[in-house]
Design a protein around this nucleic acid. Sequence first.
DNA 1: CTTTCATATGAGCATTTGTTCATATGTATT
DNA 2: AATACATATGAACAAATGCTCATATGAAAG
Lengths: 120, 120
Amino acid sequence: MEDQKSAPRCEFLFVHQDVVDQVNRAMPGEEELFDLAELFKIFGDSTRVRILYVLFEAEMCVCDIAQLLGMTQSAISHQLQVLKKSKLVKYRREGKTVFYSLADDHVRAILDQGMEHVTE
Amino acid sequence: MEDQKSAPRCEFLFVHQDVVDQVNRAMPGEEELFDLAELFKIFGDSTRVRILYVLFEAEMCVCDIAQLLGMTQSAISHQLQVLKKSKLVKYRREGKTVFYSLADDHVRAILDQGMEHVTE
DNA sequence: CTTTCATATGAGCATTTGTTCATATGTATT
DNA sequence: AATACATATGAACAAATGCTCATATGAAAG
């Protein structure tokens, strides 16, 4: 995580090597940080957030979600694939229809935490 | 939130009007959902996440953040403006340099919650 | 086997996003 | 006033993103 670009040098930082060490100790690894950002990216779209809120209430098929949100089946299906890839939702096939539901309770916890910040 | 697009109609949903009602009752308002997605969008970039992790350890000037993350002063400054607009960081001017710090503890709580999901 | 219905998916397109580069602003020092 | 240094900012560009449209897949019913 060092020399990707020529970073400027001001007088402050390297007077305090202890701060540098502390940051480097506390900072999660490159990959964890990337994954974390990727996770939040998923929540960073209101269509996906709305889908998740719908699924809080009940397991539901693609068509119903589309109808509830007033959006195309295709648009919803695409986003469900995104949510599926990120393991945020799971699905269950029953004949022609596929029922989606939340993968785990973390999803709710994350959204609640964010909502707390928004509605304050 | 109704008729933006012609949504398909499958047999399931409107057999169960109670589910529809329940969803509509529980679903936050259009604006809250938008703001929530906007908030998560901010966290959905690893540069910004890394900046926030740096600021967990200490208040720091733009130049030092850039140096610690091996990035351009300009890139960091741009992202700090984004974080500032979202009220996630605050700043304090001291002569030529500007020190940035976290705006509140929600920031940490949100990142921790996400990290829990990532590292499981 | 053909049709129908629910869902998935690929290509195309417009929009958004993150970085770079050049330059502007703001503050202190001489 | 002139210079130097820290930061901010606008334009430009490449990459990523979300939707649409057309079409493919998969499962049940005729």
